[in-house]
């Protein structure tokens, strides 16, 4: 377990196919602990699939994957206890209020002091006024925020975000940045995809560029290697 401190996610030759469609061809990747990693790539490059694999929603066909040094297939529940995810769909019950949705998540997460916890988390993402509203009546951006609140409620050491800025206004993006910064300062790991590449590169410690289910670039210093990343990203985009 010595590597637990340095490597959050380690992927070796990870493959995922859907019939004749290859989602991930052969992914080798090491994501260090305590930083923000952004996944870049055009649509269908495998970003979302990779996030779903990390969230254990998708089973890999072959290869090895360890999260915090734990083998994915064997220790599912203990990995998931330390993972929070806000993916593409908000994953909320439309006919329940925001509070009920969070309450439900808190009870399947077996968290203590649920009421205070829910209020505190709601405050962090700025939805404390909307707790009694039905989720169905909320805008897409607000639903995203509720989804984010659910993901960070149990303060997981690994946070997975799929395009978290989409649908958010400027102030909310700032709040998101604060949450992400808070994660980094607590030596927790954030893995996210983004379509606002400039903003992504500002907050990222590591950047990964994907194309056709392969990793084509991995940078540990996105600020200085910015142009290389932009080039790789542009070459991917040009092929679309």
């Amino acid at each position: 377990m010595t590597q637990t401190n340095t490597i959050a996610i380690k992927a070796e030759a990870v493959v995922k196919n859907y019939g004749a469609k290859a989602a991930l061809r052969s992914i080798d990747l090491e994501i260090p602990t305590g930083g923000v990693t952004i996944l870049l790539g055009s649509n269908g490059a495998g970003k979302s699939t990779l996030l779903r694999v990390f969230a254990m929603l998708t089973r890999i066909d072959s290869g090895n994957l360890t999260i915090h040094g734990l083998e994915m297939m064997k220790e599912g529940p203990s990995i998931r206890a330390n993972t929070g995810a806000a993916l593409h769909a908000p994953m909320l019950y439309g006919d329940m209020s925001v509070r009920e949705n969070l309450m439900f998540s808190a009870s399947i997460l077996r968290l203590p002091r649920k009421d205070t916890l829910i209020y505190e988390t709601a405050e962090k993402v700025g939805i404390q006024d909307r707790l009694e509203d039905r989720v169905r009546s909320l805008s897409h951006g607000l639903q995203k925020k509720v989804s984010l609140a659910r993901a960070i409620m149990h303060e997981p050491s690994l946070l997975l975000l799929d395009e978290p800025e989409s649908g958010l206004d400027g102030r909310s993006v700032n709040q998101l940045d604060q949450i992400i910064a808070g994660y980094r300062s607590h030596n927790r790991t954030v893995v996210m995809t983004t379509h606002i590449i400039e903003h992504g590169l500002e907050i990222a410690d590591h950047a990964v560029v994907l194309q056709h289910g392969n990793v084509i670039l991995m940078s540990n210093d996105p600020i200085t290697e910015r142009s290389a990343i932009m080039n790789a990203y542009a070459s991917v985009g040009a092929k679309l």
Binding site: A22, R25, S26, Q211, H212, G213, N214
Partner: peptide, 14 residues
């Protein structure tokens, strides 16, 4: 065939 199709449709960068 499925394997071959996967290999031919989007040539991977290997």
């Amino acid at each position: 065939i499925v394997d071959l199709k996967r290999a031919t449709t989007t040539p991977g960068v290997s």
